[in-house]
């Protein structure tokens, strides 16, 4: 059997695959976090809760309406985006002229409420969500077995990230966003409805988290705590990448997922802390983050 540093190749590839899957979720979540932060200057602690909501909405659709994975992939994120609209209009829009720390405190409270409610209703054990029939089974690549759904998640996350990047860098809407990030008052003076732009941005960020949640549902279980664990890791990813660059957030997400996977192979004890350790090292060497501009 082929081995690398004494580890069998299939085992190594298996962990790398898990790392890449995790990285896909880190990338999608840190992307949404960066988009929201860029425009609203709010660190969205509720991002994990919105990811969890996406998974639960998909599960609700299947369980109570018999609506399967593919429609849920569209409907559940829309539902989460709608929740985002309500959150922005009712709560966040009231605190924009305050210190940014209040945004973190507010969304932290929101995350506690949302996750607390789901925990109250559904307990801490996860609900299974089965892999869509199209992606049952696996590819045998010779050196490793690649489950079809996992391959799909990776491809889907790349498409999602690229599409979001194109939306922001290449469209008129994106130009409004980039301009409003710099000088919202002037953009509004030109006649752009900036308050609505803010609502839309938060909805898009929340929708991205929801979409990640739907994709995650068949991989992990649908659990009220699934977002709580990931959100702080994503914070570290964002600190490492620097929030100045959308691409930076995405690339950092994938790479750190892989690093985490590798750590599981070579030094499993550190796999849950390695991203935080990297954050410390990056802060010591390059405080603004790898892609930061400040």
């Amino acid at each position: 059997m082929v081995t690398v540093f004494g580890i069998s190749l299939p085992a190594l590839m298996g962990q790398l695959l898990i790392g890449l899957i995790n990285g896909s979720f880190y990338a999608m979540l840190s992307l949404g976090l960066a988009v929201i932060f860029g425009m609203l200057r709010v660190i969205n602690f509720a991002h994990g809760a919105q990811y969890m909501l996406g998974a639960f909405f998909a599960w609700f659709l299947l369980r109570y309406a018999g609506i399967g994975f593919w429609p849920a992939l569209v409907l559940a994120p829309l539902g989460v985006a709608l929740v985002g609209v309500v959150i922005e209009k009712v709560l966040l829009s009231r605190i924009y002229n305050l210190d940014h720390l209040y945004g973190l405190l507010l969304t932290f409270g929101l995350a506690l409420v949302i996750e607390g409610l789901f925990r109250h209703w559904y307990g801490t054990s996860g609900q299974p969500y089965s892999i869509p029939s199209t992606f049952q089974g696996a590819f045998n690549l010779g050196f490793m077995i690649l489950p079809k759904y996992r391959a799909f998640v990776i491809v889907a996350s790349v498409i999602v990230c690229l599409t979001t990047w194109l939306l922001i860098e290449k469209t008129k809407f994106g130009a409004y966003l980039r301009a409003a990030t710099e000088n919202p008052t002037l953009v509004q003076a030109f006649g752009v409805n900036v308050p609505r732009l803010l609502t839309l941005t938060y909805a898009i960020g929340a929708g991205l988290a929801g979409l990640a949640g739907v994709l995650a549902a068949p991989v992990y279980q649908v659990s009220p705590l699934m977002g709580q664990n990931i959100v702080i890791i994503v914070f570290a990813v964002v600190v490492i990448g620097g929030m100045g660059s959308i691409m930076g957030a995405v690339v950092t997400g994938y790479v750190l997922g892989l690093v985490e996977g590798l750590t599981k192979v070579f030094y499993p004890e550190a796999s849950s802390t390695v991203i935080f350790v990297i954050m410390v090292l990056v802060l010591l060497v390059r405080p603004a983050g790898l892609f930061g501009k400040e």
Partner: peptide, 12 residues
């Protein structure tokens, strides 16, 4: 509101 003033015909 600010974003409607431009539509009245002011350029800044």
């Amino acid at each position: 509101p600010l974003h409607q003033i431009a539509y009245a015909g002011l350029g800044f």
